[in-house]
Design a protein around this nucleic acid. Structure first.
Lengths: 202, 202
DNA sequence: TGACTTAATCGTACGCGTACGCTTATATTG
DNA sequence: CAATATAAGCGTACGCGTACGATTAAGTCA
């Protein structure tokens, strides 16, 4: 009953399977680069990768799972930017503000990407697990912001520090969501919103 | 050159056109009630309304425009709830908190509706104008929260009051967005997030 | 009346994600 | 060898939103 003496066609070796997985990802990526996000369809990926459309579903449960790898690059790019901008600032509070501003600025400047990642109905309704299990974005944020928080006096120890961080994250995402999806409203410069939060809480 | 002496088939009278518009809306609504949101497709609306699918597009520019009327009911329901819950509270600050909690609770309890309205990529990318021009939700919020704000000391006059309100709205929407779309993360009870904001700023 | 013009209706077609099930390849077992 | 079992690959089909253009209806004008 072990896997060496099973009936039927054996599964392909892991490395071979992995090679195909990567071929698919890389094909999707190059389609994204050369033709833009809307062109990244299952049919086009399959055609360009030289396989049948439904074969993709042997390697990924759905389209989103393929797109994870593209989304992850958005966040890589974003965190590089954030780290660079933070380094230019002096003082924990200024740096924290810079994190928020840069993070926010990125999404507002790339509204299409924000829509892709955050306004993805499929992602939101299924157990997609991109943020934590695919790209551990919470960890990356903690990596950037954690050191700053130690320099700031957030009362209440570790657990309330997390509550504070999560609040801030909700806030920033909310600003992006509103500014991007309710574009018909005359929003103020988002620096003002950030200031209200940081000036009050710090 | 006036509309009474134009060549060609005349436009149908406004009331007749309006009758069809309402027939479409009402059909969409009854489909939503009896079969659920995913069943509200252009083809089904048209079939049930007894017209060709593409005829719908003579009366609405796209599917979202039809759905506006369903979304508006969500907000009607929501604001009734908010007003009822606020009335149970004493004191402006408690009431303001209750507004946030009830608003947030509604969306978390109706995640599907939040997705429909806020995570709608089409809405977010086109000039959909639902929030301001179709249902003036900003005005409704101001109607509920405005009186409370006068009792609270927000420094800086009218304009910074709006900045404060907008901040709060971003924050609440952000909490909903994160809790709903990043469900794999172990979020705290959202009351804690609200408290951080309100306790610091008031 | 027939030619012309404009409005209303909607049939057809495209590309989408993906459910389902068939075909083919490759192993073990008798 | 044939029978059987499992995996890999993918063809077909469905329902979706909607672009496009043909068809039909209903007026004016010569």
């Amino acid at each position: 009953m072990n896997q060496e003496s099973r009936k039927g066609r054996p599964k392909q070796p892991d490395d071979e399977r992995q090679k195909k997985v990567e071929k698919i990802i890389q094909t999707a990526h190059s389609l994204f680069i050369t033709e833009g996000y809307p062109s990244v369809s299952m049919r086009k990926i399959a055609a360009k990768a030289g396989m049948g459309t439904m074969t993709l579903y042997k390697y990924f449960p759905n389209k989103n799972a393929i797109l994870h790898h593209i989304w992850a690059e958005f966040f890589d790019e974003l965190f590089v930017l954030v780290k660079a901008e933070v380094a230019k600032q002096q003082g924990a509070k200024n740096q924290l503000k810079q994190v928020c501003m840069t993070y926010l600025h990125y999404w507002v400047e790339h509204k299409d990407r924000f829509r892709i990642v955050f306004l993805n109905e499929d992602r939101a309704s299924s157990d997609d697990e991109f943020f934590i299990n695919h790209a551990n974005i919470a960890a990356e944020i903690l990596d950037v912001v954690g050191p700053l928080m130690e320099d700031l006096s957030i009362p209440g120890g570790q657990s309330s520090l997390m509550v504070y961080l999560e609040s801030l994250m909700c806030f920033v995402h909310g600003i992006a969501l509103n500014v991007i999806t309710i574009s018909e409203y005359p929003w103020n410069e988002y620096e003002k919103y950030i200031d209200i939060f940081l000036d009050s809480t710090l």
